[in-house]
Nucleic acid binder design. Structure first.
Length: 479
RNA sequence: CGGGGUUUAGCGCAGUUUGGUAGCGCACCUGGUUUGGGACCAGGGGGCCACAGGUUCGAAUCCUGUAACCCCGACCA
């Protein structure tokens, strides 16, 4: 085993040995999350929360650029309000937490802790929308929601989680559909260009769509273990909620009309995707654009005169453009190398006496682990170039990995064999009957992930029942 | 919610069979020597043995119950 391949952090279980344990090890070792005494709820530690803050910052700016405004809704929903839309309540009732008492007094009507805020936004919209001049309403909320999940895992499924939920109301069906797709594209673009995670864009089947929606769109990504993760969703509600909540406006011709609504969300679950798409046996690998620390400066022989001064000077310079951390603790340099690698810092900068003599520094990429000697004169440009490179290399590697994990099945036997032996995405045709989805799920535990926008024909028969089929579906086991 | 497992110092574990003063490694603190891929020596601190009951002269250990977490399913972002 060469030095380069040596496993640096013995405490992390290797991915091939036990993927679930690898995931848990990384989360704990990198100090993203600590378990809490509250069932199913996690403490998000500074390093993990900083990732979320960077995600927030980027998305929030994009939302605002497109005209959305942030609001805050109550965290409680009266039972009667939750009941208004039939499909919606059926979808969420099994997993809501109820507040039944205020102090020692029993409430006359119990309140649920919001599992999502459609009903609150709808009630509000019915109060504030009167005229076509009030439209569109483009609201977004950053908050936490609660879903009483049976089993939980940090980031992927917790009883309480952080997210953003956009809720918009439009005059026409066309406008609502446009918004739905626009926001799906915002998410896809964010995943690919910021998180370096390639995604499949598509539409959910009726079985998998959001409770109360006309249509649900999704971006699906592929994890290292061959399981898919829904990384963002955008829903077109049509006028279903508007009718249930009486959200009407007067149009130019003085006629009463129902609004058409959308909603869309991304949650802290996406951090799970970052971990499982990019991570390796040495630990986390963070996409440069959201890494809390982009450059870790490690002084070498820092007791020697001038080293720490130089390191501080570099920190000052680089901090003007990048998120930089200088580690001048008295741990050994080797320890620091492994530590920042494990925590996924994209770029390490080593500076020691030999470098100072030559007016240079050593830059080491988390992705390639190659050392590059660069002159201190133009180090900003070098760092920028390397961070950009790292982003691209991470994206390419993720795309390659997804392609390797994507198969095509024409027959049911083939399909079943792929699910049990290889996993990953399976492209296969579907007749459109929910019974086939149910049968596939029962036989294989794989579900339909989405009907991709980029359709192709891999066969003319449904992979399950053999009847004529025109729709290509991505299938797979999912988180 | 079903099936399996775990719970002893911050982390990883031993000790439980056969009850008798709670241990090891790492981490942490002090001092010194080190420093280009997880350094070394010496000294030191830290535990209601998950929680609640019981049995016993005496419980980490035996008996009841409860909780949290992990894994595999079912349900979901």
């Amino acid at each position: 085993m060469s030095k380069k391949d040596k496993k640096m952090v013995e405490e992390i279980t290797s991915m091939s040995e036990d993927f679930a344990q690898w995931y848990t090890d990384i989360i704990k070792k990198a100090q993203l999350v600590e378990y809490s005494g509250v069932r199913g709820c996690m403490v998000i530690q500074p390093y993990g929360y900083a990732i979320w803050e960077n995600i927030q910052k980027t998305l929030d700016a994009k939302f605002k650029e497109l005209g959305h405004e942030n609001v805050y809704m109550p965290m409680f929903i009266p039972e009667s309000l939750l009941q208004r839309e039939k499909d919606h309540v059926e979808g969420f009732a099994p997993e809501v937490a109820w507040v039944t008492h205020g102090g020692s007094e029993e409430l006359s009507e119990r309140l649920c802790v919001r599992p999502t805020s459609e009903t609150l936004f709808c009630e509000h919209y019915s109060n504030v929308i009167h005229s076509y001049r009030d439209l569109p309403k483009l609201y977004n909320q950053w908050c936490s929601v609660v879903r009483w999940e049976k089993t939980t895992r940090p980031f992927l499924r917790t009883a309480e989680f952080l997210w953003q939920e956009g809720h918009t109301a439009h005059a026409t069906e066309e406008e609502a559909q446009e918004e739905t797709i626009r926001m799906l594209n915002v998410y896809a673009d964010f995943c690919e260009n910021v998180l370096a995670i390639p995604v499949i864009k598509g539409r959910k089947t009726d079985k998998e769509k959001f409770a109360g929606a006309n249509a649900t769109y999704t971006i699906e990504s592929m994890m290292h273990d061959g399981k898919a993760l829904q990384s963002g969703t955008s829903h077109n509600f049509g006028d279903g909620f508007a009718k249930a909540f009486g959200i009407q406006y007067t149009d130019v011709n003085n006629e009463l009309k129902y609004v058409h609504q959308t909603s869309w969300g991304v949650s802290t679950r996406i951090i799970g995707a970052i971990i499982m798409v990019h991570g390796d046996d040495a630990g986390l690998k963070l996409p440069p654009k959201i890494a809390p620390v982009q450059v870790a400066i490690i002084p070498v022989a820092q007791h020697k005169e001038g080293v720490l001064d130089k390191a501080n000077e570099l920190k000052e310079r680089l901090s003007k453009k990048f998120r930089v951390k200088l580690d001048d603790s008295d741990k050994s340099p080797g320890w620091k190398f492994s530590e920042y690698e494990m925590r996924g810092v994209p770029l390490r900068l080593e500076i020691g006496p030999k470098d100072i003599e030559k007016n240079q520094a050593v830059l080491v990429s988390r992705v390639t682990r190659e050392k590059t000697f660069v002159s201190l004169d133009n180090i900003e440009e070098e760092v920028e170039k390397m961070l950009e490179n790292i982003h691209n290399q991470m994206y390419d590697a993720a795309l390659k990995s997804r392609e390797e994990k994507t198969s095509t099945a024409k027959t049911y036997d083939e399909f079943k064999q792929i699910v049990s032996e290889k996993g990953g995405f399976i492209k296969a045709m579907w007749c459109g009957d929910v019974k086939c989805e149910e049968k596939i799920k029962e036989d294989t535990t794989a579900t339909s992930r989405c009907m991709p926008f980029e359709q192709e024909s891999v066969s003319d028969k449904c992979v399950c029942c053999g009847k004529p089929a025109k729709t290509l579906v991505y299938w797979g086991k999912a988180y």
